[in-house]
Design a protein around this nucleic acid. Structure first.
Lengths: 208, 208
DNA sequence: TCACAGGTTCGAACAGCATTCGAGAACCGT
DNA sequence: ACGGTTCTCGAATGCTGTTCGAACCTGTGA
């Protein structure tokens, strides 16, 4: 990849973390930070949107690496027994929660990307990011061994639910605080993770 | 309210349902549909964004009315016994799910509004819509009577979780389908509602 | 009937945007 | 050293939301 392209991605990543709202993201600003003319964005990536997606993919890989690290730790801690259900759930949603609450993390990149992906005019740009669930397969494996009475689809559905709850805390914090009368500290990652685990774990209970 | 203003809201509502990307929403297009000059948007609403928020508020009221109707029906069906937990959950998330799958509904208005709220530079415009939880208070009441072992905050947290899962199905359908290997029919409202109820209900179980 | 004030309409104008374009510079295998 | 590809860059294009001032209704008090 070209040096200019890399500098644009770096600038894009940095800028996505500095801005509050995606509208403040302009090709001119990215180019200014990267030290290139604005037209370099279109030349190297086709469009500003594609540059943002490329940037998000790079960040997303790091998040998934952290998920896998947490999962492996939970597995090794329990070996040779299967890992605790709570540990697997925490590995699935923990890094997102932790990143979203860490002001120094690159989580804003993913938040802005998700916003952009919602009914974008070019959904094909995001299909790789959204439809790739490779990084969930290994979770699927452990959940199945922990809840063999659930089908693969039922496990996938529960993973989806867990991710939906995760999104609710990482993206609608104000509403959450209002709904719980400010009695839950949604600014503390461990508290939030524990609360999510507490509601997700029962979903995997044996029926009846 | 002025006749021109009403025509602008009508045009805005209609247009929000026709477009699939919020960027296709332009003041000039709204004005064209409404038969006014583009400047009328700024004159009557201050900004295009404020017009969209006003439009969304009108639609949101209808959605909440439908939630209340479903809830009241569940209550009356079970009277004098307390309503079924499943019925209360279905009333909470059902209308959103149903609207989101009905091509003729006004759900796109709310979807675009949410997208806009996340990428806007003027969050104060949305605080009324996002922080108002009056329409959830009555749900809180019935949940508490069904699960008295949970505190008000714990109930609020579970409502939040249910709404997060709801958003996951109304907004990330493709990802859901991939995760469940296309074995769950996410285009059928009753199926989706039943699945959500199935995972949310256990959250209210008595501990231990 | 007139005069006037306030609210409303309207089109032109403004600043900002992403992207395109064409000309030139830089690089690289031969 | 040459020829062709890749890259750089600033100007230009056609969008955008919003502002502005003049014109236009409409109702009121004299």
């Amino acid at each position: 990849m070209n040096q200019t392209a890399i500098r644009l991605i770096d600038a894009c990543e940095q800028l996505l973390c500095e801005i509050d709202h995606i509208e403040q993201m302009t090709a001119r600003r990215i180019a200014q930070v990267a030290g290139t003319p604005p037209s370099a964005v279109a030349y190297h990536f086709g469009s500003q949107e594609q540059l943002i997606v490329t940037t998000a993919e790079r960040v997303y890989k790091r998040l998934n690496a952290e998920r896998l690290t947490m999962l492996n730790k939970a597995v090794q801690d329990a070996a040779p027994e299967p890992p605790a259900l709570e540990g697997v759930i925490a590995a699935l949603i923990g890094p997102s929660v932790r990143w979203s609450l860490d002001p120094g993390s690159r989580y804003p990149v993913l938040r802005h990307m998700t916003t952009l992906a919602q009914r974008s005019g070019h959904p094909e740009l995001y299909s790789n990011l959204i439809e790739s669930i490779e990084h969930h397969r290994v979770f699927m494996f452990y959940f199945r061994s922990l809840a063999p009475w659930l089908s693969e689809a039922e496990i996938g559905w529960r993973i989806s639910c867990a991710l939906g709850i995760r999104s609710q805390v990482t993206r609608n914090r104000r509403r959450n605080e209002v709904l719980t009368s400010h009695t839950i500290d949604f600014s503390d990652a461990d508290t939030v993770i524990a609360h999510i685990v507490a509601v997700v774990a029962p979903m995997f209970c044996r029926p009846g």
